[in-house]
Design a binder for these strands. Structure first.
Length: 338
DNA sequence: TGTCCACGGGAAAGAAAGGTGG
DNA sequence: CCACCTTTCTTTCCCGTGGACA
């Protein structure tokens, strides 16, 4: 293979790549930092649950914060994807392997022994375990066992909004104090920023234009991973064709190669949710006014009235989709279009 | 200190989507 | 293809909570 013309650093586009700076996820970043902060003063941190659609930065940011923390504090660390390692044994095995510098015999070892190993390892030192896609966990006992070890802080990640509800009440009660952090879909401009960042680190200058990146960002449906993947495929394709820059044609061909992850969540808004957006388009509002506005508008359109709790669920959804911004807390929250 | 009122968890009811066997 | 059952998602009902404000 001769000199690359497009790609400077292919790692930048890999799934495991963690960027040196995180864009547009300040709240989530601070949230996780604060939850883990007690470690630095020898206290027990909060467990954390991260929710959000695919490609909203959950895994990336969790790893980023843990990396950052470990520069200051020597905590043990393990990342396990529960979808790949679905059995309880595999998960424990992976954790103990990550925690331990020495080799662990895989054969003839029981779950209990693995738990013992883990427990011994974290004596006097703390361990952080990221369980990605924890809703895929086949053996929920493991979660219970891990939660019983006081030296372990869990970061649980899922793209199902209420993944916890499936678990045993005992597990839920142990997680009741966990901090729940939501990751809304990225907006198109935010994905554009992320793509520009990756371009800078991963591609040779001048190989892709901003308007081309805009095209990719627009096709990403709020999923940063999808955007990055499109850029990666386009780069490789351009490289293969021996081009010295990425052409529009290559980009258009790359877009359909990346599967939809969001399943068109965005156009699946119901009439009420569309009305809410329309109202917020003109001016920001607090919840009470917005709700009564919605009621009278929907009456005019011949729609049934909805109950207030349903309205709040709609708002929650819209915020999660990143279509509405919520500022202020509790009952004094204000909603505005984002 | 009590009232006000949106918040949000959770259960129950209802609706839609997904199988399966005839 | 339809009838029926199961699973999953949505909406409603119920209710305890907590911060502002008087």
């Amino acid at each position: 293979m001769e000199e690359p013309k497009i790609i400077k650093n292919p790692e930048v586009f890999e799934e495991y790549f963690i960027p040196t700076r995180i864009l547009h996820r300040e709240d989530q970043l601070m949230g996780i930092r604060n939850d883990l902060k007690p470690l630095l003063s020898g206290k027990k941190p909060r467990n954390i649950v991260l929710y959000g659609y695919p490609g909203t930065g959950k895994t990336c940011i969790a790893k980023y914060v843990v990396d950052e923390l470990r520069k200051e504090f020597p905590a043990l660390y393990a990342y396990v994807n529960c979808w790949k390692e679905e059995s309880g044994f595999k998960i424990l095995y992976n954790i103990s392997k990550n925690f331990s510098s020495s080799f662990i015999q895989r054969k003839g070892i029981s779950k209990d022994e693995l738990l013992d190993i883990i427990e011994r390892k974290i004596q006097g030192i703390q361990g952080i375990v990221i369980l990605d896609e924890f809703d895929k966990l086949s053996d929920e006992r493991i979660l219970y066992d891990l939660l019983s070890l006081s030296g372990i802080t869990l970061i649980l990640i899922s793209n199902k909004p209420n993944a916890l509800q499936w678990f045993d009440p005992r597990i839920r009660s142990r997680l009741s104090s966990a901090d729940i952090i939501d990751f809304p879909l990225y907006k198109t401009e935010e994905i554009l920023d992320i793509l520009k960042d990756r371009r800078e680190w991963g591609l040779i200058p001048g190989t892709v234009t901003v308007s081309q990146l805009e095209r990719i960002a627009g096709a990403s449906e709020g999923d940063a991973r999808k955007g990055i993947e499109i850029l990666r495929i386009a780069s490789i394709e351009a490289e293969n064709r021996d081009l010295d820059k990425i052409t529009d044609d290559v980009i258009e061909k790359s877009i359909p190669k990346v599967p939809d992850t969001q399943k068109h969540k965005l156009d699946a808004l119901n009439p009420y949710q569309k009305l809410i957006l329309k109202v917020l388009n003109s001016k920001p509002m607090d919840s009470g006014n917005l709700f009564s506005e919605l009621q009278s508008l929907s009456e005019k359109q011949g729609l049934e009235r909805i109950v207030d709790r349903t309205f709040r669920k709609y708002m929650e959804r819209l915020v999660n989709l990143g279509l509405v911004r919520a500022s202020g807390k509790g009952r004094w929250r204000k909603y505005s279009k984002s």
